[in-house]
Design a protein around this nucleic acid. Sequence first.
RNA 1: GCCCCCGUAGCUCAGAGGACAGAGCAGGAGCCUUCUAAGCUCUUGGCCGGAGGUUCGAAUCCUUCCGGGGGCGCCA
Length: 592
Amino acid sequence: MSVSSLVPMILATLSQLFGDAFEKLGLDREAGIVTESDRPDLAQFQCNGALSAAKAAGRNPRELAQDVIDAVGETTMLEPLTIAGPGFININLTDQALADQLNEVDERFNASTAEPRAVLVDFGGPNVAKAMHVGHLRSTIIGDSMQRMMRFAGHDVLTDIHVGDWGTQMGQLIIEVERRMPELVYFDDAYSGEYPEESPVTLDDLQEMYPAVAARCKEDAEEAERARQATLELQQGRPGYRALWNHFAKVSQVSQGRDFEELGVTFDLWHGESTVHDRVGPLIEGLISAGVASDSDGALVVEVAEPGDTKEIPPLILSKSDGAYLYTTTDVATIEARVQELHRDLILYVVDARQALHFEQVFRAARRAGVAPSGVELEHVGFGTMNDKNGKPFKTREGGILKLKDLIDMVSDAARARLDEAGMAADYEEAERNDIARRVGLAALKYGDLSNHRMSNYVFDLDRFTSFEGKTGPYLLYGAVRMTSILRKAGEQGFEPGRIVPPIDEADRNLMLQILRFPNVFDRAISQRAPNHLAEYAFELVATYSRFYESHHILSEADEHLRQSWLRLVAMSLALITLLLDLLGIQIPERM
RNA sequence: GCCCCCGUAGCUCAGAGGACAGAGCAGGAGCCUUCUAAGCUCUUGGCCGGAGGUUCGAAUCCUUCCGGGGGCGCCA
């Protein structure tokens, strides 16, 4: 996927220029690809094509590089080209060309793709009866960043939270409620009236019940059998169970909705496994008659192994020997719904990497079943786990699972403490101070996660996350706030941003070059489904800006054109960091 | 047993087949009478897990071994 952007893609322009030169020499124009320099001390950009082309043409690479330079010819855009090492061509823009490029930049940094697709991002995935905990954090913030990137790229995007609400644990909860409160009307087969509107259990009740009943089912075959039976009856529509299950879903959604709101994450669809229940029967019927699904030890399975497999792929179980469905079943049916009803052609699953095999099976089954035609892409965007300092999945000091809400409170409190201790924002209203603390805390949390490559298992160290120094979310907010502040003060003095003039020194030039990198970074981030590239770039942008800020006193600059130019650079930097942080789901306060 | 992911500075992590492998933290030395010091400058620190291979060129691709994590039919 390539980005067509209103930001002039300097690399595309240069690659065109060098591609033409290679072509003129009768060589592959692909060799003309220009990249950012690996050696910023030597050049801004480089072209390595002479090396590979020389090999293919049986020529000396440095001589060929010289031919390419001659073929490019003189241009006002470039400083004289030089050859380095074995045959690298080093490229620098003239300062005038650099300023010209910046003056072409649209501050919305539009990156709309030429080929919009109908995308669905499946992430979040909370389970009924469980409060959101740290385990949901990664799916939520990586998924949210994915949806923001996809939307920014101009795709038609829908998001679905895909709640885990239809599996075995539902039956377990039902039997646990029955065991404790057998008198409830939900368990009375003879009852035929309306069920109460008020839930007999709270989310806290369910949270406490679930581990208890799950443990019992593990040890006691009879209990497990009862839970299986309850799950089956729920799925088959027993009215009392359905009514009780609705309560479970509702109390869970209220709590989880608050957590997502707190994180600033929204979904277009709040669907779940149960949403596609009515599809499952017909789907299975169709698969049986088509010969895709078959019996295996009483269970209904789809064989998904393929001849070229390097590993053993077990068949996908569509329904258990007792007739109950699994999440595999609803996953296949959900693909069908997303294709047939929502007309999606790219479906991303932002789910724990440990489910890779599951998705491999589901995707293959969906292909075999004809549920996902060849034009529909299915992709598992996996991620690693968040561990503690000892490399174990993150737990509280007491060994329990840390609730997401408590985690957010911890980082917000730390930010608030930092605010107080540093004497910052001392004269702001209490409400604003709290808002700042919340944003700083969330920025620390989200940036700390998104700056890691999604596949790595990373260590969550609260002390490190709340130190707020160096490469952290708060550093980025701080940089942005200083940009806002300087623009505000400029406005008060009647100073306005103007046209960019050629840079006067390295700090100036580096900031300009940094801004021009955006389209390439975005392209890489979205095509690799890797928000960490944006996170890294956001840090580099602010760091480059900070050096610029330290070395130029903008508001006291006497040269009006230079001052206007610098103010424009500040405004562009602010627009860009705001965009980058928005793509990461991070909000910037007005001041801090 | 088979398969997947990960081994990069003391710590936490980036890294796009290319030039001397980067950042943050921690350690050391500095910078606030001017636009927010949650900042900036300088500095110490590496056989990119080991060994082979492909390539003009490998942290990156291939093979193999070692270490860590994970997954493998009726849980999600």
